[in-house]
Simulated assay, not measured.
Amino acid sequence: VATLQEWMQHQRYDGVAVNLDPGAETVPYQAAIDVREKFTLKEIMNEYSLGPNGAQVVCADLLAVELDWIRGHIEEINCDYFLVDTPGQTELFLYREASKVFVENLSDRSAMILLLDPLLSRTPDGFVTQLLLASAAHLRFQIPIFPVLTKCDLLEPEEVDNVREWATDLDKLAMSMPHLEGMSGVLSSELLRVLQVLALESNLIAVSSKEGEGMDDLYSIIQSTFAGGDDLEAHVDTD
């Protein structure tokens, strides 16, 4: 979020950050809207005598409770883009019903950037699990979803190329899969077949917050979805 916001500001596009992670002690950006003004992970732990995991579940559900408060603040801000930073536990946000309610009612022009773990994605079987996560996101949320290979600077350039090739050609991914015996072999084969039927092949964007890489590609795919590829008018300083 911080890197994309910085890139947009450099390009003179409006983009404000919204923090929805009540467990974050600090965030690397200035949040125009911050759910920690309503509750924090530590407060929920103390109030309900919960450990961190249980409190995270409660916090995920409370996001839907605070939807009107968040949406009200969004309506008060004149801005082209709201960059919403959700809690880092992808599975927690993905599978809670409250998250689905939140996403469906936040705005009628929303998209989701799904961050794929680079170290898991660099192996064929690991990348398949990431595609399954992406397919679950498509099933849960009826909005555009853009899988993005995050922290690509942790991988060698050839590893990034391999992952991007697998994303655009699932046949290559199938050929790269290790030969597995028994139920594991059947499962891997059937999962790949399902992914091919779902047509989840895509031009995977690789980004790096450390290097600032991929922000222009990410912006372009968002623009092609919501504005047919036309840029929003840049906001030029008149001072």
Rank of each mutant, 00 (worst) to 15 (best):
E156M: 06
E156C: 00
E156V: 01
E156K: 10
P157T: 07
P157E: 08
E158A: 10
E158C: 04
E159A: 02
E159I: 05
E159Y: 00
V160A: 08
D161W: 09
E165G: 13
W166D: 00
W166N: 08
A167Y: 08
A167I: 11
A167Q: 02
T168K: 14
T168N: 13
D169K: 10
D169I: 04
D169V: 02
D169M: 04
L170P: 01
L170A: 10
D171I: 05
K172C: 09
L173F: 09
A174W: 04
A174D: 08
A174H: 03
M175L: 13
M175D: 14
M177Y: 06
M177A: 05
P178V: 03
P178A: 03
P178Q: 06
H179I: 03
L180K: 08
L180I: 05
L180V: 07
L180H: 01
E181A: 02
E181L: 07
G182I: 07
G182V: 08
M183Q: 15
M183L: 14
M183R: 15
S184Y: 09
G185I: 05
V186Q: 15
V186W: 12
V186N: 14
V186H: 12
L187C: 10
L187S: 13
S188E: 06
S188F: 10
S188R: 09
S189R: 12
S189D: 12
E190P: 03
L191A: 10
L192G: 08
L192K: 01
R193Q: 14
R193P: 07
V194D: 14
V194N: 13
L195C: 08
L195E: 07
Q196S: 13
Q196P: 03
Q196F: 04
Q196D: 05
V197P: 10
V197A: 14
V197D: 14
A199R: 15
A199W: 04
A199S: 12
L200Y: 10
L200K: 09
L200H: 12
N203V: 06
L204P: 11
L204W: 11
L204H: 10
I205W: 05
I205T: 09
I205G: 00
V207R: 03
V207T: 15
V207Y: 02
S208D: 01
S209D: 11
S209E: 07
K210R: 14
K210M: 11
E211W: 07
E211M: 05
E211L: 15
E211G: 01
E211N: 12
G212W: 00
G212P: 04
E213Y: 02
E213P: 09
G214V: 11
M215Y: 04
D216H: 05
Y219F: 07
Y219K: 12
S220P: 00
S220N: 12
I221Q: 01
I221V: 12
I221M: 09
I222E: 05
I222F: 06
Q223S: 06
Q223Y: 08
S224L: 11
T225R: 12
T225I: 00
T225L: 08
T225Q: 15
F226M: 02
A227I: 01
A227F: 13
G229S: 11
G229P: 09
